[in-house]
């Protein structure tokens, strides 16, 4: 009597087929990652030489050369961006977590998410109008500001999330000791959330370190060492882009090498961020 009828069998088959399709979707979604990583390693390794890390780019046809200036440039831009993005992001995140329960908090949270969704190229155009036009030149400063603006909502929202994870009992214990709220927030709450906040900053750095579009007409690019904060500055991403769309095989090889270095930085930051974020112990 408990034998599956024809429809029951059809339903069972449909169930199995759908499950297989979902698994296939996973494979399709992960395949590009495997392919990208595979090609970067295969094509990029040969370009990773001592010269790549120590020399300036060589003119077309000369061969050799490296991306030392772009590597330093990317690090400089990240540092500049962090000066803008980290303090504003962390304090804003504290605001959202601690006193952002009302309408103002809702609007700020909403705007932060919207700002996070604004295309990075638009941020580039904004900073162009804001900084490049008045200064009449592309500059490291403009690039740093553009990346910094992108960093703010990223750091803000993760900080909020991490601070919210801090148990209320910890705060209350501190307040009950008569410690003022502002000291409690900085010394107890924020300190308890430190690991999480660092995770957020690292992920934000990984994200902006790979950005190209907002730098195209803010930081621009240069084949030389940077000459100052008000001068154009090279970056791995813009250099990679210029090399990739150029018609020279030698440049393509360097582009793959740059991709390998950039991807390694991004991966290390992501993995480290996860490692730092994991122990959610709130002791010290």
């Amino acid at each position: 009597m408990i034998t599956p009828a024809r429809t029951a069998r059809r339903r069972l088959v449909t169930d199995r087929v759908m499950t297989a399709l979902f698994l296939a979707a996973i494979v399709v979604a992960v395949a590009p990652l495997v392919s990208v990583l595979g090609y970067i390693v295969a094509q990029g390794v040969s370009g990773i030489t001592w010269a790549f890390f120590t020399r300036l780019p060589a003119p077309v046809g000369e061969g050799g050369g490296g991306m030392a200036n772009a590597l330093v440039g990317t690090l400089t831009l990240i540092a500049l961006a962090s000066c803008v993005g980290v303090p504003v992001g962390i304090l804003g995140g504290l605001f959202l977590a601690e006193i952002g329960g009302g309408a103002l908090g809702w609007w700020i949270r909403f705007t932060a998410d919207v700002l996070n969704g604004v295309p990075s190229i638009v941020v580039g155009v904004f900073v162009y109008a804001l900084v490049v036009v008045p200064m009449k030149r592309f500059s490291a400063l403009a690039g740093g500001i553009a990346l910094g603006i992108m960093m703010i909502p990223l750091v803000m929202r993760t900080t909020e999330e991490m601070v919210r994870l801090v148990p209320a009992a910890l705060r209350e214990a501190s307040l009950a000791l008569g410690i003022p709220w502002w000291v409690t927030t900085l010394r107890v709450t924020l300190r308890a959330a430190t690991a999480g906040v660092i995770t957020g900053v690292m992920l934000a750095v990984a994200r902006i370190g790979g950005e190209t579009a907002p730098l195209l007409f803010t930081a621009f690019n240069t084949q030389y060492w940077q000459a100052g904060w008000d001068q154009p500055i090279a970056s791995l991403t813009v250099q990679l882009y210029n090399y990739a769309i150029a018609p020279y095989d030698d440049w393509h090889r360097q582009a793959w090498a740059a991709a390998l270095v950039l991807m390694a930085i991004v991966l290390v930051l992501n993995v480290a961020a996860r490692a730092a974020g994991r122990p959610r112990s709130l002791g010290g």
């Binding site: 009597m1 408990i2 339903r11 069972l12």
Partner: peptide, 17 residues
Amino acid sequence: YLDGEDIYAPYVDPVTI
């Protein structure tokens, strides 16, 4: 056993149960 049949027997489909 549901009416004498083991609902956990390997050939039984839980959906029908």
